[in-house]
Structure formats: structure tokens, C-alpha cells
Design a binder for these strands. Structure first.
Length: 899
DNA sequence: ATAGGGTTAG
């Protein structure tokens, strides 16, 4: 049997494929071809060999061709080709078309092209079939070139030609060419064909020309289910998800029955929109009409349940599908990744019969989604080494993985690779690169990229990334400045949910309740308020600004709550030191059935410190239930929170026991928690041990240095103390400067210790001096042990009196009305002297003073603080490696009372 | 079917 046929020489060797497309309207129309186009049947199904005038032998080429296609036997097909050549039939157009068809069906586009080139007079069917094939495999240039050549040769396009060329427009998202074809189709009266119109609808929908699609749909004289499906898909593309359901109902009212594509479009709408119930209804309907396991419906169900269901639903649909394609497997992989089941996803990946570029991207993105940056980078390396296909998706995920491992060197390598390989062009990739730089500590590089930003499309993303990077580094004011630059552009950035949530977080951190309220309005007007994450951020903003009532009323209005919402509610009570209420929330959370996460446990355990009565038992129970009931393994953070609570209630034996039983070596935060409790309860013996362990463990930690420094200064060894501090400075351990601030009329007034930069500082200092005298009359005794500098006693007071918190509070008293509370925010903990002072101030002035520090709120009223004077110097979660300890302000967090 | 930025905790 013949195996290969040398391809016949091309009849048009001089003609190159057209590389650039001129608009169709500018093409000169060829002379009218009097031969009527063959429109009665598909161009490629030309059966009935018996009617043919050639040999009816069973070995006739035509019959062989059919057999070859049925058996998917390429060798047989080639044999038929040989037979055709031998029978000198090869110049027959209809036989040639059958040959083209055979090669295309067997996936041999290049052979089909050779057969086409061998035809002396290709007809409309020859052209259409080949154009369609080029369109489907993403080669629009060849498709359009053939279309032009067909016209040049005077072959009139028919419906099939139009559908084919439009398919290529869809593939390359060329709406302009699409509308030119549209005009041409109208001119040649092919628009009445429902298939042509449907293809046109497809082009408009995919190219984002929704109005053109709407208009065409309205003008169509004949519609079928595909027409409706195309418009429904258009609504999905436009994010008008409720419209999809409306259209579906309309279609049914007009007597059409939805097919698998309609249902899968509905499910996509439900998955992307807010249609949990809608999606389940579609599932029920699919069951009823027996389409549940249809390939496209099944795939859409997998996607829907990944968004609005549980992993069991996803797996159930997937495994019952009788026929699965790459999309199905990739969907299942994504499902497992979304539900955090990385190993199951990898398992699916290993089992897949076939993988493509998207599959690899999904795996890579899944690793990123689950915080497995290192595995993501390994996979990326594997993709590169094996020369697998990569796309923008691959690159953005790889960059994302790199930002996740946050390694400067890797980030530079990846960055260099992107530049070298020249794939930096896409705006998505650039936005991802900027974000990576910001995350790997290359904030200057990020800024450089930002200022030379070329792409408008992803500007909001880069903007958000950069703001976020600044606020992560503690550069809050720079972050806000960037925020303003975005709003003041000629083309102001439109905030989306992400940006809004982030800026709200910033408002919360800074205590900017006025800006926060304005953003609340923005959220309400834009509809972004229904976004859970925006709701959560808004809630936290109010809570952190001391507006607990505004926060809780917002909570009750939120359309839905997730774990983060509940955590935020617990945290709100926690920073207001209302432990019992925080624990009540924990009960409600369980009643509602929301799954707690590891943060929930950090919060509720910490809440046991702020309960009215001893809640050591409660916190033991919580701690034990973590693993047994919720399958959450306690981390060292949970241990230090426990130690903090146990120590607070004086259960030092239990605290020691817990530390001894830790599965891993107790880390510094555990010892810090113990140390702080010992300070509070004056447990000297244990405190010394804790300090010793801390010193051994973290000789490099700033707070350890302060500890030693305090040790020296407390015993009057100033030189040693100062030397330690100098060491510390030389090692660059100094972190953010301490400051306190207050907002008034949307302006922030920020103070350092002994700060005289404020324009009204003369007034502030005289007021403070008067206030100090008044307080001293009322019994205030400055506690100079909070001054750690080698200075004379009178100077010590000077250092103490002008701590940033005191300056900010006095300024607040000066500028606000007598009935208003003074709200000050301090970026680290209040020192004991400031704390005592504020109590006197509140009673002497009769004003309410609220100071938010790193541990939460201190609300001073009539000489009493809401913290009950048992405030932690380490914050509510003792895991805080306190960065604030070293500040010139002198508000130290570790006191020397122990020694 | 796959991608960027954030919200709770630090």
C-alpha cells in the first residue's frame, strides 16, 4: 500500500500568502462570476459516488476516502490520494475537495493545503473548508489571505465562507474586520442566513461590541438557539449576569428550548455573579432535561460549584461525567486548588490524560493561591526547561510566585528573564512585575516602573500595588499621597473593590475616620458595598477608629459574612478590650456555622485576657478544641497567646507546663509573653528565666537590646547602656520612628517626642506645661524610670513630659470642642507614664480622651482607663516582635521594673 | 478551564 504521495506542485508558486489585510471595502471587486455558488449542501459533504461518472469500483478513491475518515486511518487516506492521482482524477474539483476534507478531518492541515494547491480551479467549497480550518487553529492571516484570493479569482463567497472568515475574526478578536465582513455580507445578501448572523453575533460579543450585537440580534429575521446563546454569552462578557437569566426566560417564552450551551452560559453567569441559588436551579433544570452530564454543562457546573459550593459537589459532578475533556480536568484541578486541597489537585494533574498550557497555568496559579510560592517557581522552572508553551498567564503567575517567596535575588533573576525574553510587553505582566518588586523590597524599582508606566489598562492595579507596598513598609503618608495622585489625574482612577478595601485599611490604621466615611459613601453609591471584602474593610475601619457602634450596625447590614467578617467583629471587641463580648461573638459564629480559621483562634484566645472573670478554663478549652474539633494545628503564635492569657490570670504553673509541652522549641514571642506577664504580676523568678531565654534566643532582636539596655540603666550603668544602644544603631536595627497623631478637619497633626515643628508648638508647649502642673497638683508623679537616657534628673523630666502622645493629646484638647472626645493614635504602645498622665488629664479637664496604641484603645474618662490599668506592653497578641522598642521618643515597651 | 491588587492576624 502506498504510504506517501509527493505533493503536487503548487499552481500558484508566485503567490505568497497575504500577510497584511487591507480593509475589504478597499478591495476591488472581481468581475461577476456567472456560475451560481453551491449553497445547497455543506461544501465538504459531497457523497453519492454512485452518481459520479467515474468508476463505481469499491476501490474508487472517493469510497476509500470515506472509509479512511471513518476509520481515522491516515495511511488509507493517502492510498486514496494515490489512487486518485493514478486515475488522473486529481484535477477534478469535487474529488479534490473530498481529499481536502479527508486531510482536515484527520488533522493534517498542511496536507490539505497541498491538495488545495494542486487544484487548478478551486471552488467556493475548497476555499471555505480551508479558511475554516485556518480560522479554527488560530491562523487568521492565512484565513483572511485565502478569503482575499478567493475574491480575486472571482469565486463568490457563500454562507460557509462567511461563517469561516468570521470564525477567524473571533479567534483574533478583530471586531473591525468583523464589521467589514458584516457590511460585505449585507451587500451580498448573506445576512439572512442564520448561521452567518450567528457567527457575526459571536464576533461582536467576543470583541466587546455589545451594542452592535444587540442591534444585529434585534434585526435578525430568523433566530435559533445559537443566536440566543450568543447574546447570552455577550451578557456574561459584559458582567450583566442577571440579564442572562432574563434572556433565557425570554427565549423560553418564544418557544425555544435551551441546549447545553444555554445552560452552561447560565451557570457561568451564576458562578461569576451572585447567583448561588440561580446556579442550583439551573443544575436542577439540567437534571430534569437530562443535560446534567453534558460536557459543557458539566464543565460549567464544576466551575459554578467551585465558586458557590463545596469541594464534594465539584468532585461529584466531575467524576460522574461520562466524557471529560482537558477543560473538565483543568476545572477539577482548579476546584481542588480553590478549596486549598493542593495535593488532590496535583493528583488530578498526574491523572490527566492530556494537558495543555492552560492546565499548567492553573496548577501554577493554584500554587500561588495556596501560598506555595516555592513550588510554583519549581513548576515554572520545569516549564522552561521542557520548553512547554508559556503565555501571559504563566508569566504573571510565575512573577506572583516570586513575590511570594519574597527573595530579592530570585526576583531579580525572574525580572531579568522577563526582559531578556521580551515578554514584558503585556500590561498584565508589567503590573505583576511592579507588584513583585514592591513585595521583594525593591520599592524604588517599583516606583521607577510606576513613573514610566505606559499602559493605561492595568494602571489601577499598579497604583493599588504601589500604595499597598508603601503602607506595608509603614510609609502610610506616602501611600495616601499616591492615593491622591491617582484621583487627581486627568483621567482619574476609578476605584474598584480592591483599591477601596485597601484605602479603607489605611484609614483604619491611621484613624482617618473622615476619609473613611467619605469612602463609605463611595462604596454605597458605586454598589461596591455589597462586596464582602469591602464590607469587611469598612467595618474594620470603623472599629479601628473607635466607632464601635457604627461598626456593629454596619455588620448587621452586611448582606453576607465570611470568616474574615466574623474575625473582624471579634477583633473589634478585642481592641476595645471587651473580652466577654468577643467570646459571645465566637458563640454566635458557631451557631451560624461559620468555619473559624487560625486567626479566629488567635483572637478568641487573646480575648480571654479581657474577660470580667477568670477565663483560663475557657481558653484551655478553646485551645484544645482547635485541633480536635476544627483540625487547625496550633502555631507558636497560638502558644504565645495562651501563655499571655495564662500569665495574665496568674496561672504561671500552667503557662510553664504549656511551654514545656510545646511540640517545637519555644520561640521568642512565647518568652516575651511570659516576661510581660511576669512584669505585670511581679513574678521575678520566672521573669528572669524568661528574659534569659529571650536573650539566648534573639541576641539580634532590637527588643532584646532594649532589655539589656534597660537592665543597665536601671542599675545606673549608663555607659554600658549607651554602648548597647550605639551597637544597635550601628547594626541598623532602628525601625520606624515613634509618633502620635490626631486628625482634625481632614488634616493630620503628627508629633514626635520633643517635636517643635508644629506651627502652634509654642501654644502646645505652654498648655502642656500648665496641664502638667495641674495634674501634679491632683497627684500625678512623673515616673522617670521611663526615661532611658543618661541625663540629669531635671532633664529626665524634660524628656518625659514631651512624649509624642502628650503633645498630641494637648493639641487635641486645644482644637476640639469641650464635649468632644479627643482621639489620638500612637503607632506603638503608650508608656506607663503617659498612661498615668492621661488618667489625670481626663479628671482634671473633665474631657474624654481616647488613645489607640498598638494594643488597642485606652479610653480615659474621669481618671479611669478602660484598660483597667492592666494593659499589655506587648499588644493583645504576644507574637508581636515589637518594632517600636527603640524609639527616641522614650516610650519603651519593656520596662526595667523586673530588675 | 488559567492571571494582578485588598479585607481579619502580624
Amino acid at each position: 500500500m502506498a504510504t506517501t504521495i509527493p505533493p503536487p506542485p503548487s499552481p500558484f508558486p508566485h503567490m505568497k500568502p497575504l500577510l497584511s489585510l487591507s480593509p475589504l471595502s478597499s478591495l476591488s471587486l472581481p468581475p461577476f462570476n456567472p456560475k451560481p455558488p453551491n449553497v445547497s449542501s455543506s461544501p465538504l459533504t459531497q457523497p453519492n459516488p454512485t452518481h459520479h461518472h467515474h468508476s463505481p469500483s469499491p476501490f474508487a478513491p472517493r469510497r476509500l476516502l470515506r472509509l479512511a475518515v471513518d476509520r481515522r486511518d491516515l495511511d488509507l487516506g493517502r492510498a486514496a490520494h494515490a489512487a486518485a492521482v493514478k486515475a488522473q482524477d486529481i484535477e477534478d474539483t469535487r474529488l479534490g475537495n473530498a481529499l481536502i476534507s479527508m486531510y482536515l478531518k484527520l488533522g493534517r492541515l498542511s496536507d490539505a493545503r497541498k491538495a488545495f494547491d494542486a487544484l487548478p480551479s478551486p471552488d467556493v467549497a475548497s476555499f471555505s473548508s480551508l479558511i475554516s480550518a485556518y480560522a479554527k487553529c488560530g491562523r487568521p492571516v492565512e484565513a483572511a489571505g485565502l478569503f482575499c484570493r478567493m475574491r480575486f479569482l472571482g469565486v463568490e463567497p457563500n454562507e460557509f465562507s462567511f461563517v469561516a472568515i468570521l470564525t477567524s475574526c473571533i479567534r483574533q478578536l478583530d471586531g473591525r474586520l468583523g464589521s467589514q465582513v458584516h457590511a460585505f455580507a449585507v451587500k451580498t445578501d448573506h445576512c439572512s442566513c442564520v448561521h452567518v448572523s450567528n457567527a457575526l453575533l459571536g464576533v461582536y460579543v467576543k470583541c466587546g461590541c455589545a451594542s452592535a450585537a444587540d442591534q444585529l440580534f434585534g434585526e435578525m429575521v430568523e433566530r435559533d438557539v445559537s443566536s440566543w446563546n450568543a447574546v447570552m454569552l455577550g451578557m456574561v462578557e459584559e458582567c450583566r449576569y442577571d440579564e442572562v437569566f432574563r434572556l433565557f426566560n425570554l427565549m423560553q417564552m418564544e418557544g425555544y428550548h435551551g441546549d447545553g450551551f444555554s445552560l452552561s452560559t447560565l451557570l457561568t453567569a451564576a458562578a461569576h455573579g451572585f447567583g448561588g441559588a440561580g446556579g442550583e436551579a439551573v443544575h436542577a433544570y439540567a437534571l430534569k432535561i437530562g443535560l446534567e452530564l453534558d460536557l459543557s454543562v458539566g464543565n460549567a457546573l464544576v466551575g459554578f460549584y467551585t465558586q458557590f459550593g463545596c469541594v464534594e459537589d465539584v468532585a461529584d459532578v466531575f467524576w460522574r461525567m461520562p466524557i471529560k475533556d482537558v477543560t473538565s480536568w483543568t476545572g477539577m484541578l482548579t476546584g481542588y486548588m480553590e478549596f486549598g486541597m493542593v495535593e488532590s489537585a496535583v493528583d488530578i494533574f498526574d491523572q490527566m490524560p492530556e494537558r495543555n498550557c492552560v492546565t499548567y497555568n492553573a496548577l501554577l496559579a493554584g500554587y500561588c493561591h495556596n501560598g506555595e510560592g516555592a513550588r510554583g517557581l519549581d513548576l515554572f522552572r520545569h516549564i522552561l526547561e521542557n520548553d512547554l508553551e508559556i503565555s501571559d498567564f504563566t508569566l504573571t503567575s510565575a512573577i506572583n510566585a516570586c513575590g511570594m517567596v519574597s527573595d530579592l535575588k530570585t526576583s531579580e533573576q525572574v525580572h531579568a528573564f522577563m526582559i531578556k525574553s521580551g515578554c514584558k510587553s503585556s500590561s498584565w505582566v508589567e503590573a505583576a512585575l511592579l507588584d513583585m518588586c514592591a513585595k521583594c523590597g525593591r520599592i524604588e524599582d517599583a516606583e521607577k516602573m510606576f513613573t514610566s508606566w505606559a499602559h493605561e489598562e492595568s494602571f489601577p492595579v499598579a497604583w493599588t500595588s504601589l500604595i499597598c507596598a508603601h503602607s506595608r513598609c509603614g510609609l502610610h503618608f506616602e501611600a495616601l499621597h499616591l492615593f491622591q495622585t491617582g484621583l487627581r489625574r486627568d483621567d482619574p482612577v476609578v476605584m474598584d473593590a480592591f483599591a477601596l478595601a485597601m484605602i479603607l485599611g489605611l484609614c483604619g490604621t491611621l484613624g482617618f475616620v473622615e476619609l473613611g466615611q467619605q469612602l463609605h459613601c463611595v462604596a454605597t453609591k458605586s454598589g461596591l458595598l455589597s462586596d464582602v471584602e469591602v464590607g469587611n474593610a469598612l467595618f474594620s475601619m470603623y472599629a479601628k477608629c473607635g466607632r464601635l457602634e457604627d461598626a456593629t450596625s454596619l455588620f448587621s447590614q452586611m448582606p453576607q459574612h465570611d470568616t474574615v467578617s466574623w474575625n473582624a467583629l471579634i477583633m473589634a471587641y478585642l481592641i476595645h478590650r471587651q473580652g466577654d463580648k468577643a467570646l459571645d461573638v465566637w458563640d454566635s459564629m458557631n451557631m451560624v456555622g461559620v468555619k473559624p480559621d487560625f486567626i479566629t483562634f488567635l483572637l478568641v484566645i487573646s480575648a480571654c485576657r479581657y474577660t470580667r472573670s477568670n477565663s483560663v478554663d475557657v481558653c484551655h478549652k478553646l485551645f484544645q478544641s482547635m485541633e480536635s474539633s476544627y483540625n487547625i494545628i496550633p502555631t507558636s503564635e497560638h502558644y504565645s497567646a495562651m501563655v499571655d492569657v495564662l500569665g495574665y490570670w496568674g496561672s504561671f504553673d500552667e503557662a510553664e507546663q504549656l511551654i514545656k509541652n510545646m511540640p517545637s522549641k519555644p520561640n521568642a514571642s512565647v518568652w516575651r509573653a511570659l516576661l510581660d506577664s511576669c512584669r505585670l504580676r511581679s513574678n521575678m523568678t520566672l521573669g528572669r528565666q524568661a528574659a534569659q531565654s529571650l536573650l539566648e534566643l534573639e541576641p539580634q532582636d532590637p527588643s532584646t537590646y532594649v532589655l539589656i539596655s534597660n537592665l543597665y540603666s536601671a542599675s545606673g550603668r549608663w555607659h554600658c547602656s549607651e554602648k548597647v544602644r550605639q551597637d544597635m544603631r550601628e547594626k541598623g536595627l532602628q525601625k520606624h520612628p515613634v509618633r502620635s497623631w490626631i486628625t482634625h478637619h481632614s488634616t493630620m497633626h503628627s508629633f514626635y517626642a520633643r517635636d517643635r515643628s508644629h506651627p502652634q508648638s509654642k501654644d502646645i508647649y505652654s498648655a502642656l506645661d500648665i496641664l502638667i502642673l495641674e495634674c501634679m497638683k491632683a497627684g500625678y508623679e512623673p515616673d522617670t524610670c521611663f526615661v532611658l537616657h543618661e541625663v540629669e534628673e531635671y532633664q529626665k523630666k524634660n524628656f518625659l513630659f514631651y512624649h509624642s502622645a502628650k503633645l498630641a493629646v494637648v493639641y487635641g484638647l486645644l482644637i476640639s470642642g469641650p464635649d468632644q472626645p479627643v482621639r489620638v493614635v500612637k503607632n506603638i504602645h503608650l508608656c506607663g507614664d503617659c498612661h498615668a498622665f492621661m488618667k489625670y488629664v481626663s479628671s482634671v479637664t473633665g474631657r474624654e480622651i481616647s488613645v489607640r496604641d498598638a494594643s488597642g484603645f485606652h479610653n480615659f474618662r474621669a481618671g479611669v482607663c478602660s484598660c483597667g490599668d492592666y494593659w499589655s506592653e506587648l499588644g493583645y497578641s504576644s507574637s508581636t516582635s515589637d518594632q517600636s522598642v527603640l524609639q527616641p521618643d522614650g516610650c519603651m515597651t519593656v520596662r526595667e521594673t523586673l530588675f
